[in-house]
Design a protein around this nucleic acid. Structure first.
Length: 484
RNA sequence: CGGGAUGUAGCGCAGCCUGGUAGCGCACUUGACUGGGGGUCAAGGGGUCCCGAGUUCGAAUCUCGGCAUCCCGACCA
């Protein structure tokens, strides 16, 4: 029927439209972002994937520092007794915890858990460090790994061990803690949109979706290419819950003994999964220039005495752009043809490709190809220094605009239950609907449509409406979606 | 954790039913010709058949147990 050779080429990546899940796994593997390890749910992040994470770290860390936070590191192991101190927290996390019961060949006196998150250990330490209102606020972040014994795992999206940052802050007043929680939420949103070119909805979670032990949980939610939502970051106002459980007390300005108000917040390597599913296409990964390991790949055309003519010119271009701060990969390997290299670097999502051959030398130009639009154009050699950075920024903006247009096209309002279920059928996207605030209605919506309440957006106006499920009085309009 | 499927070279797979020398395509190595969208020809190399027991003269193949991956469901910040 079809050429078997062609077929084996085609099977390298399953088309996105054919099977989104398989496409995602193919991209992760073929772009060499990650590979499976021998342990269930644990992945190896390969150099190309880790390079993306390093850019995410760099760009986020700069924002944390600019808002007064400092980095520290807390240990991996937590004694069982500490986990037990905050009731809701332990109930939320106990089912997902990995235990250490032996050290060498001796049973441990007290079992240890491998941290699923660090609130309890941080709380224990803060109780020692904080004595006076003058010690506040404490604004600490850590870059770390955590372990959660998940039943269903997927590379980047949900892994047993994952990398993240977790911020833990302590404040003098409730208002300051809430201010911090919202400041970070806004920071996450700005980061996601500016650097990842990923539009997100920022809002507050319902009680049932709240972090175990938090007073209020906020999140940013993104829409993936298959119409499912992904929680891309969370920011929790922990109130005085952990302060009371861990006795984090300080003497206030009025000399009275008070409990601090704490927050915690995090984003993880899941963001890499979000990037893949937000921008990728049938040819593979599409990376926003701000976080792409290689922003530009230069492919010299090996023809005639290219090593004496074309190659030196390609090297000069690489050096010129590198000096301007552009991350450039020169692929001068002789093993593969230019066509092979085009396909390979597209698969790996490099935003801009520059081709240079003998014909281009004659015309003093290079040939460019954009990954996002696949547009091709000649650029005069003399203009590279100005055109390339401008083009990269254009690509960055285009990816955001494109993702936002997709999100908006796949966001609908529903005022009746019939409209809601219709909108949720097939590839749904977000559905905005009024809700009475009852957990029962939320649960019923989930049971009947698989859709969960993602969040109640920050800027959504108070409404006077009717709950889409029970028709009772409703004052908010959450965003619902089927989620990862 | 329940239901289903899968595990054979780096990747994709055949072989298993009916036990008897482990195969194919791509990738890889060497050489030549090539090179502007995954090149051509020739000659080569590469295997704990997921792991462990069992049945058997003999197990990739049959039996039991385990592990991992994928899909559906439950669960899940």
């Amino acid at each position: 029927m079809s050429d078997p050779k062609k077929e084996s080429f085609v099977t390298e990546i399953t088309p996105r439209s054919e099977d989104f899940s398989r496409w995602y796994l193919d991209v992760v593997r073929r772009a060499e972002l990650a590979d499976y390890s021998p342990v269930k749910g644990c992945m190896v992040i390969r150099p190309y994937g880790y390079a993306i994470w390093e850019h995410i770290q760099r760009l986020l860390d700069a924002r944390f520092k600019a808002t007064g936070h400092v980095n520290a590191y807390f240990p991996l192991f937590i004694p069982e007794s500490l986990l037990m101190k905050e009731k809701e927290h332990v109930e939320g996390f106990a089912p997902q915890v990995a235990w250490v019961t032996r050290g060498g060949d001796e049973e441990l006196e007290e079992k240890l858990i491998v941290r699923p998150t660090s609130e309890v250990l941080v709380g224990t330490m803060y109780a020692k460090w904080i004595k006076s209102w003058r010690d506040l606020p404490v604004l600490i972040n850590q870059w770390a790994n955590v372990v959660r014994w998940e039943k269903v795992t997927r590379p980047f999206l949900r892994t047993t061990e994952f990398l993240w940052q977790e911020g833990h802050t302590a404040h003098e007043t409730a208002a300051e803690a809430e201010e911090e929680t919202l400041k970070i939420l806004a920071l996450y949103k700005e980061f996601a949109e500016t650097e990842l070119a990923m539009p997100v909805v920022d809002g507050i979670k319902s009680d049932s979706e709240k972090f175990a032990g938090a007073s209020r949980t906020y999140s940013i939610e993104a829409l993936m290419g298959d119409g499912r939502a992904l929680q891309a970051g969370t920011s929790h106002n922990l109130g005085q819950n952990f302060a009371k459980a861990f006795e984090i007390q300080f003497q206030g300005r009025d000399k009275s003994l008070q409990h601090v108000w704490t927050t915690s917040w995090g984003v993880s390597t899941r963001l890499i999964g979000a990037l893949i599913m937000t921008h990728g296409d049938d040819s593979g990964l599409v990376l926003p220039p701000h976080i792409a390991p290689h922003q530009v790949v230069v492919v010299p055309i090996p023809r005639g005495n290219w090593k004496e003519t074309v190659l030196p010119r390609a090297e000069a271009i690489r050096d010129e752009l590198t000096a301007l701060g552009v991350r450039v990969k020169l692929d001068a390997s002789e093993e593969n043809s230019p066509g092979w290299k085009y396909a390979e670097w597209e698969l790996r999502g490099v935003p801009l490709r520059l081709e240079i051959g003998p014909k281009d030398l004659e015309k003093a130009q290079v040939f460019s190809a954009r990954r996002d639009t696949r547009e091709k154009a000649a650029i005069p050699m003399a203009d590279l220094g100005s055109r390339v950075p401008a083009l990269l920024e254009e690509i960055q903006q285009n990816l955001l605009a494109r993702a936002r247009a997709f999100r908006d096209e796949n966001t609908r309002e529903a005022s009746t239950w019939a409209e809601f279920t219709a909108a949720m059928a097939g590839r749904p996207g977000f559905v905005i609907a009024a809700w009475c605030g009852a957990a029962d209605c939320e649960a019923a919506i989930k049971a009947e449509t698989q859709a969960t309440l993602r969040n109640i957006p920050m800027r959504s106006p108070r409404v006077e409406g009717r709950c889409v499920k029970c028709n009772g009085p409703a004052s908010v309009k959450p965003w619902f979606a089927k989620a990862y």
